[in-house]
Nucleic acid binder design. Structure first.
Length: 886
DNA sequence: TATTCGCGGGG
DNA sequence: GTGTACGCGAATA
């Protein structure tokens, strides 16, 4: 029989551990494989161990074995292998030995992972086993139960058919001013969506109120029982929902406890489903099933302005979500049958959308690929845990080669005594960008720089030289030394060689694949890349089992040296100007307007430089920036052109470190930024860009910008009176309450507001957009220019030498020639930044001297007051908005 | 210029 | 469970 691994755990039966593998076979049957006879063990170095363990009932055996210690180039040594009876007692023994000065190795490996690694089993991989009788009597639900006497891992790219179930709940509290609390507020509605369907149904809605299309429940306890029953009968492999990990599931578990309903709906019938809370977050454990929270996956995979289900569904699925205000759920629940129906539909819609996101957006695919490559269980990979992924992989590879891993240090050293700060690891080398807009810039990248460096210089804990050995030793820029590959091939370089070779193979397969096969190969290729790139950072991470700054900084120092020398070569030997570079990439300006010519130069540079690079280091020609505008280190924009798969040139606007969407920016800001970036890059016309900006400013001043584009949104999280500071969205609600407006937003609702003219504090001038429209109130164009448009745009214009004075057309004529010649107006810019800016002559009704405060209707021709002071403009909206012009 | 603070997502 | 695991922008020192 063959089946795919979904989850693994163990139980003690007659005081002996039995490993249980929960999975699915090709036919879609649930399988539970049992493995008996595997015992927990770890390693210890030191002498005279026996006397401390003699007579200890937990210890099954102590033997001396030959293993290589992980850090430092050395020969194998004799270590104790201690085998215990009970995995759970390991920490006790480990800590006792540690307190007596022994050093334990691999004494913190989860038992299931110990078993998996020793047997070559990984999450979502396939197991082949011979079926046999004599099934262990542990309480699990599975259609096929197998005693695994013999098992082997099978290479298989396909996936077993899985069953998915989405859950969403609604709760109602008496106090609409707070988030619901499980201690107090009941669950009133539960919607379940099935894929594939359950007894011919695509969904079920449970509620304590009866209604059309609803499975009525006598009370909350009855409803929760029905939920547990449905879960067990449908028996899903994957449970999803939107923020289910941090809301619905912990809430349901709490309510079950409260109502005396046993939370037993995993595939082990003797273990409760439970949650653990840490770092203000929940982790749900449902033995044998996968928890996949659509919200968490979307959040980590997409860069969006907001992550509410309504916004995300619209963006990713193109599906609109009908809205029920969070604060009005109680009203609907207690309302008419029609209102209740609306609430039930809303609940159903939420679980449908969570399901649609998971399936249509194939949210699991990337994680399945990562699980298969790394050997970790899918549940652990979905919970984040990059470290675990790597350490699992390392454990397997180190053990295969006869090495053992350290246990994690029991406390993390905050700083070492030498005054060094924790983890002062230097990163990549970043070249100071040459200011201005550059045309025809080649982009060349070092191919997988860090993995390639590790391979080229044989960097590994197992090759690190600590004594004065001199022969066959590679010295890195900061002094760390490693034996060469001939002396001993490191495990790290070997792992990376395999991962990179595998990726090459997959990419080749991709070239003749299409559809689903192509997609799955692409995911695999991506996962291989992610894994390969994760190893270098591992040694610099303070909680890693092998935390070693010497190794981490050996890698980055080699990186810095490599790119610096490459820049020198390009400028010295080839005479090209390198306008920017960061860690593993160089941007090179070339004297041609012709794309094919530039491409030829790029390829030639790549070949010639690669020839002289050591080992497998490779500098690749990536693409051409037709236009390249660096703002600062790590921030640039470019009009990029590269050859597509079909050999045709394909163009794209790329931005690094520049945000165009931010939750506290109105639409006008994002839109204007995009437009201006487009004009600068594609038209290369500064005048046009400035003109565009001024047009927007003028429209703003004339009230010609659609108010919708000026709305800023924020969620209200507490009751308005419980805010300490003054916040714009809260002020809006207070105003609405004051005038008894309809539809006043409540806690949890999003509030859109605009800033209007006035003399009060900024936050106090926030207003409800529809109120502004109805009453013809003037918006504060000053605010929109100074706080919304200028901050991001000034940075962009600043990079091409246009300061805010020129931008607003108030100072001297714009010196475009100067601008292009990279004039640095840094001092002026700094000064301007500290001062508010005049926005429009329309807005001005007088002048004041900045020194003596003498008012003028018109300024004297000399441009200064009699006392010598400069002028302040006083605007129509009064002294508070007074602005200075230089 | 570094460090703490607060909030998101969910009802 | 052989555990312990946000992440980023804003406000503040």
């Amino acid at each position: 029989m063959e089946f795919q691994v979904l989850d693994v755990d163990y139980v003690l039966v007659n005081e002996k551990p039995i490993v249980r593998v929960f999975g699915k076979n090709r036919e879609g049957e649930t399988v539970c494989g049992f493995y008996e006879g595997f015992m927990p063990y770890f390693y210890v170095t030191g002498d005279g161990l026996e006397e401390h363990l003699r007579g200890n009932p937990q210890v099954l055996s102590i033997e001396k074995v030959k293993r290589c210690l992980p850090v430092g180039y050395q020969e194998p040594s004799e270590v104790y292998k201690i085998t215990l009876r009970n995995p759970a007692k390991t920490p006790e023994i480990r800590d006792m030995l540690r307190s007596k000065g022994y050093v334990p190795y691999e004494a913190d490996i989860l038992f299931k992972y110990r078993w998996m690694n020793d047997n070559g089993i990984g999450g979502m991989k396939w197991i082949k086993t011979t079926e046999s009788n004599g099934i262990a009597t542990t309480s699990v639900t599975a259609e096929r139960k197998v005693q695994m006497k013999h098992l082997e891992a099978v290479e298989k790219d396909e996936d077993a058919p899985l069953k998915y179930m989405a859950i969403d709940i609604e709760t109602v509290s008496d106090d609409a001013g707070k988030m619901p609390e499980a201690e107090r507020d009941p669950v009133v509605l539960i919607s379940l969506v099935f894929e594939p369907g359950f007894r011919g149904k695509k969904h079920i809605i449970l509620s304590t109120r009866a209604g059309d299309g609803i499975d009525p429940c006598s009370d909350e306890k009855d409803m929760l029982k029905k939920l547990v029953d449905t879960l067990n009968e449908y028996d899903p492999d994957v449970i999803t929902g939107y923020n289910i990990n941090n809301f619905d599931m912990p809430y349901l578990i709490d309510r079950m406890r409260k109502n005396n309903v046993k939370p037993v709906f995993g595939r082990c019938t003797s273990k409760y489903v439970r949650y653990d809370k840490f770092a203000n977050r929940y982790k749900i454990t449902i033995i044998g099933r996968l928890m996949a929270d659509s919200f968490q996956i979307v959040k980590s995979g997409w860069n969006l302005k907001r992550y509410g289900l309504d916004f995300v569904s619209k963006e990713l699925l193109g599906e609109e979500k009908g809205d029920v205000k969070k604060s009005e759920i109680g009203k609907y629940w207690r309302g008419t049958q029609a209102e209740f129906k609306k609430l039930a539909d809303y609940c159903l819609q939420d679980s449908r959308l969570a399901m649609n996101l998971l399936l249509k957006m194939k949210l699991l695919d990337k994680y399945v690929a990562l699980a298969k490559i790394s050997g970790s269980l899918l549940n652990d990979i979905l919970g984040g845990g990059e470290i675990q992924r790597i350490e699992n992989y390392l454990l397997r590879e180190f053990n295969k080669a006869g090495y053992i891993l350290p246990s994690k240090a029991d406390r993390v050293p905050e700083e070492n005594g030498n005054g060094e700060k924790k983890d002062s690891l230097k990163g990549g080398f970043v070249l100071e960008p040459k200011r201005g807009i550059h045309s025809m810039v080649l982009v060349l990248d070092f191919k997988s720089m860090y993995p390639s460096l590790i391979r080229t210089y044989n960097i590994c804990p197992t090759t690190l030289v600590s004594d004065d050995k001199a022969e066959g030793v590679i010295t890195t820029p900061l002094g760390a030394r490693f034996v060469d590959r001939k002396t001993r091939y490191g495990i790290m370089p070997r792992i990376l060689e395999n991962l990179m070779a595998e990726r090459g193979k997959v990419k080749k397969q991709m070239s003749q694949a299409e559809g689903r096969v192509f997609d799955s190969l692409n995911m695999k290729q991506l996962a291989l890349k992610v894994m390969a790139n994760a190893f270098y950072g591992y040694f610099g991470y303070s909680r890693a089992k092998i935390h070693n700054i010497a190794i981490a900084s050996a890698i980055t120092s080699l990186g810095r040296r490599t790119i610096q020398e490459t820049v020198k070569t390009i400028e010295g030997e080839y005479g090209f100007e390198v306008v920017y570079g960061d860690t593993d990439s160089v941007m090179i300006k070339v004297p041609t307007e012709n794309l094919d010519e530039a491409e030829r130069m790029g390829r030639e540079l790549s070949t010639k430089i690669t020839e002289k690079l050591p080992g497998i280091m490779e500098l690749e020609f990536e693409k051409i920036f037709k236009r390249f505008l660096p703002l600062t280190k790590k921030r640039y924009m470019a009009w990029s052109i590269e050859r597509g798969k079909d050999g045709e040139w394909k163009e794209d606007v790329v931005m690094k470190g520049i945000e165009t969407v931010r939750r506290d920016w109105c639409e006008l800001t994002s839109e204007t930024m995009c437009q201006i970036i487009e004009i600068i890059l594609k038209h290369n016309d500064l005048k046009e860009a400035v003109k565009y900006f001024r047009d927007i400013v003028n429209k703003l001043l004339d009230g010609k910008i659609d108010i919708e584009k000026l709305v800023i949104t924020k969620t209200i999280t507490k009751r308005p009176d419980s805010y300490v500071g003054v916040q714009p969205h809260v002020e809006v609600i207070k105003k609405m309450m004051g005038r008894k407006a309809l539809d006043i937003p409540g806690v949890g609702d999003r509030i859109g507001y605009v800033i209007v003219k006035g003399t009060q504090l900024l936050s106090k001038r926030a207003e409800d957009p529809s109120y502004v429209k109805d009453n013809g109130i003037k918006l504060d164009s000053n605010y929109y220019i100074n706080n919304q448009l200028l901050p991001p745009l000034e940075r962009i214009f600043g990079a091409i030498g246009v300061d805010r004075e020129e931008l607003l057309g108030m100072g001297k004529q714009m010196g475009l020639a100067e601008a292009i010649n990279n004039h640095n107006h840094k001092h002026e810019q700094e000064q301007a930044a500290r001062e508010p800016v005049i926005v429009s002559v329309n807005d001005v009704n007088g002048f004041l001297c900045s020194k003596c405060n003498r008012p003028y209707r018109r300024p004297p021709l000399v441009g200064r007051c009699e006392c010598g002071g400069s002028f302040l403009f006083s605007s129509a909206s009064g002294p508070a908005d007074m602005v200075r012009i230089r």
